[in-house]
């Protein structure tokens, strides 16, 4: 566990030196929000319609921006034989996976935290601090599920010919069980339902995270061995 934290720390250090991935993901997700906001411009004043649309828009932005970052996680390692060096580390292969999940989670979650204020401004919400905390919890659980599967599939597509194209194709069908409760829970939070209103969605997200973490942990070794 400590060892995977070392790997995560290495990734985060490398990322925050350049902030290349973080910045491009952030700008991309903001652009998605702006595009949706423009195309729905006519009825942004109608709060009943915004309430139905906005949670989906938020998740579309996060999913696509996140995918942009995920496709980079292992490509970054393939330069200068870094992946081989990483595999030579005296750690379990699954520790590499856990470390990558952790660093990706931190980067994507930070990106989401920065995006949220823009989302609130563009879609005209006013949220109190309790709601914001709850929204953070929903986003954390949903993003964790997204990252858990995405990191595995990112390693899987590393050696394919069309990796940037293939990752979304593989990821989206598998991601459906996290997107549906994620969007539902976000809609519930934004509509002002408390923790009790979204508990079944949160439970499902947690179950998804646990099951997929266990499965990915087991099969990751095969995804990067050659």
């Amino acid at each position: 566990m400590i060892r995977s934290l070392y790997i995560a720390a290495k990734d985060l250090k490398a990322e925050f030196r350049t902030k290349q991935m973080f910045n491009s993901m952030l700008i991309f997700s903001l652009l998605v929000l702006v595009v949706f906001s423009i195309s729905f411009g006519d009825f942004l004043g109608d709060s009943s319609k915004v309430e139905k649309l906005a949670p989906g828009v938020l998740w579309v932005a996060f999913t696509f921006a996140g995918m942009l970052g995920l496709s980079r996680t292992f490509v970054m390692e393939s330069e200068n034989g870094c992946l081989e060096a990483l595999k030579l580390c005296p750690v379990d292969r699954s520790a590499i996976y856990t470390g990558k999940v952790f660093s990706n989670l931190v980067i994507v979650f930070l990106m989401e935290i920065v995006t949220i204020p823009f989302f609130i401004v563009l879609f005209n919400y006013s949220l109190d601090s309790g709601t914001l905390l709850l929204l953070g919890l929903v986003l954390l659980l949903g993003t964790l599920g997204f990252i858990i599967v995405g990191t595995l599939l990112s390693a899987l597509t590393l050696s394919t010919r069309t990796r940037e194209l293939l990752l979304p194709v593989l990821l989206l069908p598998v991601l459906l069980p996290v997107l549906i409760p994620g969007v539902e829970a976000t809609a519930g939070v934004l509509a002002g339902n408390g923790l009790s209103g979204i508990s079944s969605e949160l439970r499902l997200l947690a179950v998804y995270d646990l099951i997929f973490f266990a499965v990915s942990h087991l099969v990751f070794e095969y995804a990067i061995s050659d």
Binding site: L152, L153, S159, L170, V174, V215, V219, Y222
Partner: peptide, 12 residues
């Protein structure tokens, strides 16, 4: 790699 995806897909 296909086997890995076969397992992940089945679980989903």
């Amino acid at each position: 790699l296909a086997a890995v995806f076969g397992i992940v897909g089945f679980v989903s």
